[in-house]
């Protein structure tokens, strides 16, 4: 029996550009053109200044490790334990934190520098992933 991953819905009207950019090897986040505030999870309306003028921006693809958990109790066939979930805060926009999946129990330290890489799921979309910066 083939085990399939969980594919992200890449057609959502608010978030599809995130996955389209990932497929091109770019990391993007949403921000307000009027007040410059990053918006995550992305929304069309900026709650900070009231503008509807929001757009996607390219991120450098670097960040800091904010938190992580090693999952040792498996609850889904697509995610064999142990694996480690990392929460990475973008250097470009600390208001944005993204998730990464790492196999096993990698040695991690709070606030360590992280870098993005792009994982093309077999027969599926591409996910931005994170690893300790080289």
């Amino acid at each position: 029996m083939t085990i399939h991953p969980l594919f992200p819905n890449v057609t959502d009207r608010e978030t599809h550009e995130f996955f389209e950019a990932a497929a091109e090897g770019r990391l993007v986040f949403r921000a307000c053109n009027a007040c410059d505030h990053a918006l995550h999870p992305p929304t069309a309306h900026c709650p900070y200044c009231g503008a509807w003028d929001t757009a996607w921006r390219n991120a450098e693809g670097t960040g800091r490790l904010h938190a992580w958990t090693t999952v040792t109790h498996q609850i889904h066939p697509a995610f064999p334990a142990p694996y480690t979930l990392v929460v990475v805060e973008l250097d470009d926009a600390p208001e944005v934190r993204l998730i990464g999946h790492m196999d096993g129990t990698p040695p991690l330290v709070a606030d360590m520098p992280m870098e993005v890489w792009f994982q093309a799921l077999p027969n599926g979309p591409t996910l931005p992933q994170w690893r300790p910066a080289a």
């Binding site: 029996m1 085990i3 399939h4 991953p5 969980l6 594919f7 992200p8 819905n9 890449v10 057609t11 959502d12 608010e14 978030t15 995130f18 996955f19 999870p41 999952v71 889904h76 066939p77 697509a78 995610f79 694996y83 979930l85 993204l98 998730i99 990464g100 999946h101 799921l121 599926g124 996910l127 992933q129």
Partner: peptide, 21 residues
């Protein structure tokens, strides 16, 4: 759960989380 599944969207924002495990 077995088989391919598409998750998130429709305002849930789960597409940023569930595909990572």
């Amino acid at each position: 759960r077995v088989g391919a599944e598409t998750v998130g969207g429709f305002g849930t924002y789960d597409e940023y989380y569930l595909p990572y495990g």
